[in-house]
Amino acid sequence: MTVRRMNYREAVREALREALARDKRVFLMGEDVNRYGGAYACSLGLPAEFGDERIRDAPLSESAFVGAGIGAALGGMRPIVEIMTINFSLLALDQIVNSAATLRHMSGGQFSVPIVIRMATGAGRQLAAQHSHSLEGWYGHIPGIRVLAPATVADARGMLWPALLDPDPVVIMEHATLYNDEDELPAEGDMSVDITKAAKRREGSDATVIAHSASVKKALNAAEMLAGEGIDCEVIDLRILRPLDDETIVASVRKTHRAVIVDEAWRSGSLAAEISSRITEQAFYDLDGAVERVCSAEVPIPYPKHLEQAALPQPQSIAAAVRKAMRR
């Protein structure tokens, strides 16, 4: 099979192009998606192919254009709404939580809201405290929406179409440090991926490291470091933050008996806390020690590189947590 190299950004763009070409009801709407090409250049070139109506620049009105996306979905369209960063998505949180997530249940099952909301998330680019946070756990808290976190080029390419097939709202978190990552993809064929299961990114027997988004790479780096010390880590990429794939997580922990959770969000009230609870609820007697967590320091993410990096989970801190779990 022939393969080709592409980066995460190109994978997102190709997924957008495929969706727009496959279904006339699909359109992309958000700040700077048209003339500018997208804040992360994901839609560069698409206006020439699909026009201004379907690659729709929106004013800086997150609540209105996300709400309009919800309304358009109710009205028979399949909108993809892009929000520049997860920090800005807070301005649209009302529409996502109070409208998109509630309408099906609150109406007694009468309405579907088939909207896809994409947003950039995460730190690591020295963008300081209003462009760098990892609030995806907040979305993971909400019944009625599905939350995806593509950590690989293949997932960036393959998650969008299945997300559009989902009759319910889907939020896709794209970590801003991943856009330049390259990988090989098949040259042709169906690129769609499963959007219900977590993935094992590394097979191992001594400890399970559970991560998502950009933290997966860091977990894999830590696993390589530890392999030199004779510690064999399994790395689970959550991929789906809601609903969590308990089965894959618990099966791995039952095998390795140790769990380390990596989460770029703050520890308090985090997704890491939720996963830790589920492990103790479902696999307590399989554990050989306490569940460890590696999260960001509980500070607004600072601008200077050394402080920003000190605030975030790193391969070294992940490795240290695994050693602690192993009592080494």
């Binding site: 109506e53 709400g67 309009a68 358009a72 028979g76 369209m77 909108p79 109406s107």
Partner: peptide, 22 residues
């Protein structure tokens, strides 16, 4: 039936947008 004050306005804008695009 929207109980967030002004929360219905964006929905109406979107419904109208869908009609226009369709």
């Amino acid at each position: 039936g929207n109980a967030i004050v002004a929360g219905g306005l964006p929905l109406a804008v979107g419904l109208a947008l869908a009609d226009k695009m369709l």
